[in-house]
């Protein structure tokens, strides 16, 4: 069952991005591109030879590492009841593979002499300084209530309580931010800094990076969907339910994204800080037993 994830994780996300563009277009009262447009874009990019602005090995290697870590993240999640890569404490490994993804992006961006790339790298790291702790606090609440740090084990043993509901909402927020939807796509801002870390990439390397970003987005929202559905379902039914919850959450996020403008870095940080305070309060509530 979980091997279905090996097909879903790499090949579904660009299709979802196409759906997102269609939804955004419909909200903005235009036709928009076809659902497969993102796939067409990625395939075109993958077939083109890149132009390298620097001979640095880090620049060339970064998209491959980013793709590998995004796939690893996706493979650590459950499809149905089990996941492909599964071990105790893999929620921490999930966070750190995410860190590897950011690190690869940042190392690649810093290897080229372009102020926009550097600005994008800076923003990527600054955002992670606030939102990784928020993610950790959310995980801390789940770990306190379920006594485990394994994704599948937490997903199967969540029982509803006040702090868990709060933790779900926080997880939804963190998934939204880390997926890089519009109020928070500060690092890869298209219009402000020419796509930030991606600006000097072209051709095949750009295609790989875009694909990796889509897979990362998928992984974060699938994590949320797993935590919501797996306590109440098993096997194939769980997978179908996960897919439905995921699509619902994705569509809601895309709709919210279409109605918003991008935050400045300090505004996003303030939101993150407020989230951390709420998370700390929720942790205390969880420790008190509710």
């Amino acid at each position: 069952m979980e091997l279905l994830g090996a097909i879903v994780a790499p090949f579904l996300p660009p299709l979802l991005d196409g759906v997102a563009r269609k939804v955004k277009a419909l909200i903005q009262n235009r036709m928009g591109p076809s659902i497969f447009q993102t796939w067409y874009d990625i395939i075109t990019l993958l077939s083109m030879e890149p132009t390298l602005p620097t001979g640095s090995l880090a620049f060339r290697l970064a998209p491959y590492i980013a793709l590998a870590s995004a796939l690893c993240m996706a493979f650590m999640l459950p499809y149905g009841s089990n996941s492909i890569i599964n071990f105790g404490g893999d929620l921490i490994a999930f966070i750190y593979v995410f860190t590897l993804f950011s690190a690869a992006l940042v190392f690649g961006a810093l290897s080229v002499e372009n102020s926009y790339s550097h600005a994008g790298a800076n923003r990527e790291l600054t955002l992670s300084l606030v939102f990784k702790p928020l993610f950790t606090i959310t995980i801390g609440i789940f770990a306190l209530k379920t006594g485990s740090l394994s994704i599948t084990q937490i997903a199967h043993s969540i029982s509803p309580s006040l702090s868990i509901v709060g933790a779900y909402l926080l997880l939804l927020y963190v998934a939204y931010v880390e997926a890089g939807f519009i109020p928070y796509d500060i690092a890869e801002a298209e219009t402000e800094i020419l796509e930030g870390p991606l600006s000097e990439y072209s051709g095949r390397l750009l295609g790989l990076l875009k694909w990796a970003l889509q897979i990362k987005r998928f992984a974060m929202i699938w994590l949320f969907a797993s935590f919501v559905t797996l306590p109440i379902a098993e096997g194939v039914f769980a997978f179908v339910l996960q897919m439905m919850v995921f699509l619902l959450a994705y569509l809601l996020m895309v709709t919210y994204e279409s109605l918003n403008a991008r935050y400045r870095l300090d505004q996003a940080m303030n939101q993150g800080m407020k989230g951390i305070v709420i998370g700390a309060v929720l942790t205390i509530i969880a420790w008190l037993g509710w």
Partner: peptide, 11 residues
């Protein structure tokens, strides 16, 4: 990827 060097484009 083939090594296809050029200078960075910083607009």
């Amino acid at each position: 990827t083939k090594k296809n060097l050029d200078a960075p484009w910083t607009t």
